[in-house]
Design a protein around this nucleic acid. Structure first.
Lengths: 216, 216
DNA sequence: ACGGAAGCGGAGCGGGCTCTCCGCTTGGTG
DNA sequence: CACCAAGCGGAGAGCCCGCTCCGCTTCCGT
């Protein structure tokens, strides 16, 4: 992991860079992404200018912080994909991913927000086939109803995430119950079939990235 | 419905009040609650001062706008509660309520946000027993699994609402598919039982009102 | 018709956020 | 050690927001 690209940073600069990253990681994880550069600077004990110099756009900072977490999610998926039992593969993947989001509020907002953009798109491209495979194997075994698609699974974190987020200070585990409930909806045996169509990949991407959230 | 309480408004004042309400209704419904008083004033063709004079806190404006919509939701529940088939009662209630939210972004944010506070609490007190009754009748008929409670039903709009919101410009009906999927999770026949406990009423209230949303 | 109460508009204040700019400091090199 | 590019800090510009305040206008009772 030697840095080299555009000539190395001076030693003090690198030290400050790390301070900023450390402080930002803590702040984001605890309070979410709505943290100003000023706050990060203060927490890191450096000037605002320094933060802006290293990470001109907030996205640069987020990228540096979350790149490996996203990689970790992808690997979660790949591990799950290798499981013999596809149903367990699906559920454990979703559970593990949501667990990560439960522990890190920033990661949660990042994954579900628009800033993930390119990073998320690339991750999705690697996760989708794995989940798709799990899903079709699960259908063959009669573990999952026939009328759900990958796009439906992709919405599960959105559903459960909403509860995860709101219940965070109150019942930090409630999302597990909700996840179980939702996953039971994927089981075969429903009398009707699902109305409408699953989202196509383009729509799915928009649902994740076009989104400009603002609450109240 | 005669106004009288604190002496009537002058005629021009009343006219302005209506203009503000009309403009605010449109803005909120289209773009959500994150509209400044300035914007409302401009859209209504009045000065900011006028908006503040009539509706000092944003909550006052919201209350005036959404009071009867909330009442409508309560009546939806009561109608549904009178249905012979409790399962259909439950699903049609949720569907109708979410339909209202799909049509009015402001209502959606209001119901799921913290500003509803007192209004929502009162509404919940009227809706809960009705849903509780539907639920127990449905359980007796074997239409619903035994391990779900009213609090679990109460989370359904949160789940589905997350999709409703994000998919709004892209696939405005996707929430119906998601709702159907989630509701199938309430059906009996799951092999395991749900982990954890349903939220108690106090927790539920916090989940709805303590919530300070901020996205990215 | 006219006087005073009620209402009006919008300039302006305080505060937060993003981001820039520049005089001073520091690290590394010859 | 001496020099200067690299880096630093933070004041402050520009923007939007919520909210207030007060000189002018409009309504309405007498």
């Amino acid at each position: 992991m030697d840095d080299q690209g555009p000539t190395r940073l001076r030693r003090d600069a690198e030290r400050n860079r790390q301070r900023v990253l450390t402080a930002a990681r803590r702040l984001f994880s605890e309070t979410g992404l709505a943290v100003s550069h000023d706050e990060v600077a203060r927490a890191a004990g450096v000037g605002v200018g320094t933060v802006y110099r290293r990470f001109p756009r907030k996205e640069d900072l987020l990228l540096a912080l979350f790149e490996d977490q996203v990689e970790q999610v992808v690997q979660l998926a790949e591990t799950a994909g290798a499981r013999a039992d596809p149903w367990r593969g699906l559920t454990t993947f979703l559970e593990a991913m949501l667990q990560m989001q439960a522990e890190d509020r920033g990661l949660h907002e990042y994954l579900l927000g628009p800033q993930a953009a390119s990073l998320a798109v690339r991750a999705t491209e690697r996760i989708s086939p794995v989940v798709g495979d799990l899903l079709s194997r699960a259908k063959e075994l009669g573990q999952v109803r026939a009328d759900v698609e990958v796009a439906d699974v992709a919405l599960v974190p959105v559903l459960v995430g909403a509860v995860l987020d709101r219940a965070r200070g109150v019942a930090p585990d409630q999302w597990r119950r909700v996840l179980a409930l939702v996953m039971d909806g994927f089981r075969p045996g429903a009398d009707g079939s699902l109305p409408g169509q699953p989202l196509d990949p383009g729509q799915l991407e928009q649902v994740f990235t076009h989104w400009k959230g603002r609450p109240a």
